[in-house]
Design a protein around this nucleic acid. Sequence first.
DNA 1: GGATCTTTCTTAGGCTGCTTTATTAAGCAT
DNA 2: ATGCTTAATAAAGCAGCCTAAGAAAGATCC
Lengths: 402, 402
Amino acid sequence: MVGHRVSFAGGTSRGVVLDLIRTRGPISRVALAELTGLTQATMSTVVRQLLDEGLILETGRGESTGGKPPVMVDIDPYSRFAVGVQLGRESITYVAIDLSGAIVGRTRTPGVGSTEPAEMVGRLAAEIDRTLAGLDIAKRSVLGVGVVAPGPLDLAHGAILRSPHLSAWSNVPIRDMLSTALGLPVLLDNDATAAAIGDFWSGRLDGVTAHATVYMGTGIGAGILIDGIVFRGASSNAGELGQVLAAADDGGPVVLEDVAAPSAVVERARSTASCARWGLTGLDEFDDFRRIALAAAHGDAEAGALIEFSAGHLAAGVLTLANLFDLDSITLAGPGFGVAGPTYVTAISRRLETDLFARMRHGVRVRLSPDVANAAAIGGAALVMQHELAPRTMGLSSLVAR
Amino acid sequence: MVGHRVSFAGGTSRGVVLDLIRTRGPISRVALAELTGLTQATMSTVVRQLLDEGLILETGRGESTGGKPPVMVDIDPYSRFAVGVQLGRESITYVAIDLSGAIVGRTRTPGVGSTEPAEMVGRLAAEIDRTLAGLDIAKRSVLGVGVVAPGPLDLAHGAILRSPHLSAWSNVPIRDMLSTALGLPVLLDNDATAAAIGDFWSGRLDGVTAHATVYMGTGIGAGILIDGIVFRGASSNAGELGQVLAAADDGGPVVLEDVAAPSAVVERARSTASCARWGLTGLDEFDDFRRIALAAAHGDAEAGALIEFSAGHLAAGVLTLANLFDLDSITLAGPGFGVAGPTYVTAISRRLETDLFARMRHGVRVRLSPDVANAAAIGGAALVMQHELAPRTMGLSSLVAR
DNA sequence: GGATCTTTCTTAGGCTGCTTTATTAAGCAT
DNA sequence: ATGCTTAATAAAGCAGCCTAAGAAAGATCC
C-alpha cells in the first residue's frame, strides 16, 4: 500500500470510517487506518473531524502492545437521531433510532385509510413532532425522516406510483410535502430496501459482500445491498422477488407472490374444511395469517402444511435470488415472518445448503430480523442516517448526464 | 453543477472520458465536459493527456453554433490492440481487436483436448505471437491478453477451478504462466462476463444502466453489467442463469440448464423417432444442435418444437433475471445462438413484453450479438482494454481490508 | 529510576485532480 | 473593421490524500 493513493470517491472516506467505527468500535485510529488503507496521518484528521462534529467520542485507552496504548473512539449514539415512518393500510408505524441504529421510541397510529394526502401529511408531521418531543429529542439533532411504502415508487419525485391500498396517493409528492411541513429532510423508499439498509446500519452485516433482505408484507420483495450500497437496477425495481416464477399445483407457471405470500396462504386456508378451527376473520390478511401460523406452531398439522407450502416456494425463489446475485447473507423481515419466521429460515437454509450453486465455495448466512414487524420503519430511519452521514451510490452513471 | 466537486474515484475520469469518446465520438471537449459534469478546463487537460498517449486524435472542426467551432476528437482505433483467447474443448479461438472493439484478426486452432497445461501455455503463447506478427501488430501496442474459459474460476489466482472438459487444468495458475511466457498482462474471466464487457466496449450499450449478456455454450450463464461495471457478487459466481429453477415436463423442479441448454435439446431430440432425419452424430453437441436448429429454420415442425421448447424455458429464466436485476438491456451470445438466435430473441422479447414487472416503466432491449460465435473471445480482449485503460470496480469493499 | 525502545498520534509540507477566474483564439453578425 | 459568441488554455487556489518528521506516552532494560 506504499506510494499508491487510496481514494474514496467524493469524500466518501468520512462515511467509510464512520461505518467502521459503528460496526467495529471501540476502535483505535491505527486500526482504522489499517482497515481502510488510509494512512495514520489522514485517519487522524478524519477522526478529528468526526469528533468535532460530535458523532464519535474518545472512550478511553486500549491495551498497549509494547508502546503507547491507543485511544479508542466509538459512536456517540445519542448525538444524532432519525425517524422512520412506515405507511401501512391498517396502521402507521413511527420509529426513532439513535446513531447506532437502536430503537429509542416507537408509536403506532391508525392506518392511512381514505384520508386525503394533504391532511395525512399534516397528521404525520404532527405525530412525528409529538413523538420527538415525548422522547425529549431536540429537533436539531434529528437528521431527517425516512418514509417507507410498499409497491412501486417514483424515487426521483418522492411519490408513490401506485399502491393497492394507497390509490389516492398516486403521484402525490409526499416526500417534499412532508419535508416542508416538518422542516426536515425526508426520504422515500420501499419497504424491502429500507429494511436492508436497516440491517446494514445496525452493524449486523459486517464482512458481508452481497446481501438481500427478503421482505414479506402484502407482497414479497428483496432489498439488495452490495458492500452496503443499494442495488437498484435500471428503474429502481430490482429485487422483485415476488415476481419470480414458481411452480403451481397444476404444473402451470405462477408468480411466487401468488403462492407464498400471506394472502395466498390465507386464501388456500379458506378453501379448507379446517378453516373455521383457526378462527379466520377474512378482515385482515396478516391477522388471519398469524392465526394459521400460531396453529402451526401449536402442532396443527394442516396449518403446518400450509406454512410449509409457502416456505418451500419461498425457499425456491430465494435459491434463485441467491444464485443470481451470488449472495452471502440473507435476512428475513416483515410482518409475514411474525410468527412463522423460524420455519421460513429453516426451509430457506436447508434449500440453500443442498442446492446453492456456490455452496462449495461459501455459505450463506440466513437470519431472521431481530424485529420483523418494525424492520421497515427502522430501515427508513437508517436510510436517512446513511444518506446524511455516509452517502454512497453505485457505479458512475450518476456522474454522466443524460 | 456549480460549486460542487465532481470526483471519479481513483483517477477514473480519464477512463470515463475515453468511454464517452469511444461511444459518442467524434465529440468536442465542451460536449465531453457537459456529459461528465467536469469543467471545460479539466476536460482540456484530460483530453490533452489522451492525445499525448496517442489514444485519441483531433479529427477536424465541428459545426459552429455562433462562435468558434469546436475541435472534434475521436478514438485512434489502431493505436492499441488486445488479444482474446477462448479456451474450448473442440477449438481455441484467438481474436485481436483494436481500440474501437472491432475485430482485426481471428485464428482457430484445435481444442485443448488432453494437452498438459504447461505445454498448452507454450502453444498459446506461440500462436498469439504468430497471430500478432501476421497482422503486423507491434507487441508494444498490445495491451494484453484476455483468456476466457467456461465454468467456475478462481479469479484471485487466475486459475480454472473445475471444468467438465478441462479437468487437468484445475488450480493451474494459467493466467500467470501465460503472462510470463508472453511478457504481456493476462486476465482470466468466464465467457458470459467477457461477452458482456465486449458488448459494452463496442459501444452498443450506450445509455444502458443494467445489462445482461446471456451466454449459451455448454452451460447457460449471464454476465451482468451495471453502468459498465461487472457485477460479481460474493464469490464471482453471480449470474448463474443456468441454475434458475425451471418447470420440468412432469411438474418436478429442474434447473434451466437441464431443459434449455443445447445438450438438453440434443438429448431430447435423440429420444425422438425423427432423430435420424437430422443426421445427429452424437459426437459434438453443438454440431448436433446446429443441425436441429437448421432443420427448424427450414420448416421442420418437430425440430422447431424442440427449439421453441428450449427458447420458452430460457425466456422464463431471462424474465426472472430481468425482474430481479431490473434490466434494461439484454444481449444473447455464444454458440448456442448460432442458428436459432432469432427464435430465442423473439421468445424472450415476447415474454418480457407481456410479463416484465416494470414493463409499464421501461422496455428491455433484447438483441442478438453481432458475432455470437466469437463474442466471448472478443470480450476477453475487451476485458483487457477496460482493465488497462478504464479500470473500474463496484463498491467500496476493495478498499476495506478484511 | 533513568535511558532507550515501541507505538500512537499530530504537524508540516507536497502532490494531484479538481475548481474558479481570466485570457487567448477563432469563428459569426452587422 | 467592430463587436459578440463560443472554444480552448492558462493561472491560481482548494481539498484530500500522501510522505516525512516529531511529539507524546507508555513498556522495557539496565
